[in-house]
Amino acid sequence: MQLARRIVVRLFGGAIMVLVVAIFTFFLVRLMPGNPVAAEYNTLIMRGMTPVQAADEVRVMYGYIPHEPLIDQYFHYLWQLLHFNLGQSISYEGVSVLHIVLSDAPWTIVLVLLGLITSFILGVTAGVIAAVKRSSGIGNVLTVSGSLLHGIPQFVVALLLAFLFTTLWPIFPFGAPYNASLTAGFNLPFIGSVAYHAILPVSAYAISSYGGWMLTMKSSVISVLGDDFVLAAELRGVKPRIRFGYIARNAILPLFTVFALSLGFMFGGSLFIENIFDYNGLGNLLVTSISNRDYPLMSGAFLFITIAVILSNIVADFLYSVVDPRIRRST
């Protein structure tokens, strides 16, 4: 019962956060220089329409009048948002934003999650090895690899991968999440094609976040190794395998917080990575909508990424209280 109450409280808090972000994105988006609706309105007037005619025309096309006060536009937007109506796209004329966002979101979510999980598993394993063998050659090589990869920005990794594996050695495909000649659905060739197309972007996510996991895990393991209970378990003759489990579980705890934070970071990175690989996801959608000044689409994509990050933070929070008994009863 208590858990249910906590979940409700957290979700309510999350909803408020989403609303606050919605306010910011709405205004920020409209503060950008260049206004396509105003441009269209001006063109129509230059073609000889009266301002009233032009305003009606624009209202029909985009759902709002550009010189209407921003605050009125905002309440209109908010009212529609509460009805899960994100408006119509400007660049894809007549298509609802919700439809576009929902059709692109799964690709990004799958890519980000796969990249995150791959890098987490690799980074944590390497971090444990680097910590245990920290005074040997392997440990040093791993640590250096972690620091090096941690320092390279995501888009550089993505550009490098794209250059090496699609241009220099064209092993992997470029653009589109799957081969268009295949029928979409649960069949092997289609899934294979999706996986094949996802390898490069997922690797880009994984390589760029591996270093962070590795370094964090390494320092975490080293600090746990110095804890009294590790020595105590050894002096009690607890088997090395069981002791390793003790160390690993204690060391991985601080990484849960980082896991939640890096989800947001990864979604942000999708802007570069999807753009570089010309992959149809939220990131790419956001980039095109920005260059087209497609306000409703921009707000929609922003909002969706925000919701994804806030939700994953809440999930990570609850996971943390599952793995750490000290957190479990404190709230």
């Binding site: 209970f229 105590a232 002096l235 009690r236 003759g237 607890v238 579980r249 204690n250 705890l253």
Partner: peptide
């Protein structure tokens, strides 16, 4: 040596130290 520890020697840590795994 491992078998000797625990079965033959019992070592009791200081009360101020945390000699148990906090997660189990």
């Amino acid at each position: 040596l491992r078998r000797l520890h625990g079965r033959y020697f019992g070592f009791v840590f200081q009360a101020s130290s945390n000699s148990l795994n906090p997660l189990k």
